[in-house]
Amino acid sequence: MNGTLAKPWRSLRKTKSYKDVVLAMWETNPISKQILGICSALAVTVQLKTAIVMSIALTLVVAFSSLIISSMRTVIPRNIRIIVEVAVIATLVIMADEILKAFMYDVSKQLSVFVGLIITNCIVLGRAEGFALSNPPFRSFMDGIANGLGYSSVLIGVAFFRELLGSGKLLGFQVIPNAFYDWGYVNNGLMVLAPGAFIIIGLFVWLEHSLLKKQ
């Protein structure tokens, strides 16, 4: 990096937000390390497009719910805090669902109930309960974004392989050339079905564990 960028980058690296982001994305990646939020993860990974939309929706919901709950943290009574959190998260998810239905109707039909299931996604409630309740709003927002990005990376990774191996396409565009099909290459049908997702994510986590151990 040249001199003009190096200095701000170095001071950026020292900020708490940067450390949180890196931590959430790599070491405490929600899916593999905390084994959270896989529920709705796998069903939408049949295609890359639906996985990307789902990742964006979840990242925004986690970030904004953490922000809102963190802003209210001093006025929420302890014994009804879960109810308040679920109410905030449910409202945001309804908004996300309606926005999707309005602007991307065909994708929302493919996502069907899984956008609604973001409410019960452990990551959203987990971050709200574990971080937003005891941290200032901006840091909670960044923590939400970070966890969302960590989740998105796994989701998009799985979807990439499932769509590529299962139908030879990415984002709807034929990627594997027709010549391969003529030579006898066949799309892997298992990747498009439920078991393919389980196996791919198992292999992914194996890879991640092995890489982290070497460090």
Partner: peptide, 23 residues
Amino acid sequence: VPDGLQGFAINMITTGLMAIGFM
């Protein structure tokens, strides 16, 4: 079970095989 596979990964693969069975 190999080290990297222990815990989450092998459970996921097992669930995948169960899913094939149920299909």
